[in-house]
């Protein structure tokens, strides 16, 4: 069973993320990058499925040179090999172009199952899994909280606002997983050492027969016209409970007309 996990290298969400003033794209240089936390769940799920049977896990990413760190972290967790699509023309790509490049790369790989995180932690759009499935002409089972493989079928459980659903589809399929699905492992020392010897291929757009004019900022279907930092909230009143904290809380709520 060949599993490909699509991962993204993103600016650390706990740092002060911002935009590049020159072109209104996400600033990926000023803030340290890492494997998107939500993708760790997809890597973990891939490893669990591979370990339960006879599987090989390939990690696929696209992005500038430092994005290889996201592959390395996945390899340290236990993935077998990596593919990094890197090309200057990719800068500023929207979800449509991202799915184009990833789908082109997937067509060059062998896959039975494509796993994704539910969204990246930078853009948080959550569009790429459905877009990939649309481009590849295969099922998309999104927001899975449980995945099981039975022969050539995949079954997932989804936990929506209105219902808990069980969905079945034939393989190959795209499955995106939420942070409820598992507890991602930390790389072991052995895993870190082993990752150094694992193969990582770097592909360009030319390798994928994708024309540079189809990707990047100029080809994007959307444009950020302006961005503004949210003004810090003016600091309010903080009191210590001296026995009447609850009453004081209600006094505040009453003054604001909530009571």
């Amino acid at each position: 069973m060949n599993i490909v996990v699509c991962v993204k290298h993103v600016p650390d969400a706990t740092a002060n993320r911002t935009f590049r003033a020159s072109d209104n794209t996400v600033d990926r240089a000023g803030v340290d990058g890492l494997l998107s936390e939500l993708d760790e769940y997809a890597v973990e799920e891939a490893l669990k499925i591979a370990e339960a049977g006879d599987g090989e896990v390939t990690v696929l990413t696209m992005g500038p040179e430092p994005a290889t760190d996201a592959i390395r972290k996945s390899l340290q967790m236990g993935a077998h090999k990596g593919v990094h699509v890197s090309d200057d023309a990719i800068h500023g790509s929207d979800a449509i172009a991202t799915s184009l490049v990833l789908a082109a790369a997937l067509k060059r790989l062998e896959y039975d199952l494509v796993l994704c995180g539910m969204a990246s932690t930078d853009g948080v759009m959550g569009l790429v899994p459905a877009m990939l499935a649309e481009r590849l002409g295969i099922p998309a089972l999104t927001y899975a909280v449980e995945v099981s493989i039975d022969g050539d079928r995949v079954t997932v459980r989804r936990d929506s606002d209105t219902a808990v659903e069980t969905v079945v589809a034939p393989l190959p399929a795209v499955v995106s997983v939420t942070d409820q699905i598992n507890e991602p492992r930390y790389p072991s020392f052995k895993g870190i050492m082993a990752a150094k010897k694992k193969p990582v291929e770097t592909w360009t757009l030319a390798d994928l027969d994708v024309d540079a004019s189809q990707v990047g900022l100029d080809a994007a279907g959307t444009a950020v016209t302006s961005y503004q930092a949210r003004p810090p909230r003016s600091s309010g009143t903080v009191i210590s409970d001296e026995g009447d904290g609850g009453v004081q809380l209600v006094d505040f709520l009453a003054a604001q007309k909530f009571v």
């Binding site: 969400a13 994007a220 016209t225 961005y227 949210r230």
Partner: peptide, 14 residues
């Protein structure tokens, strides 16, 4: 965006 840290305005161009 960015956990509520920024407000952006955007357009669809295609």
């Amino acid at each position: 965006v960015f956990a509520g840290g920024y407000t952006v305005e955007a357009r669809v161009t295609r």
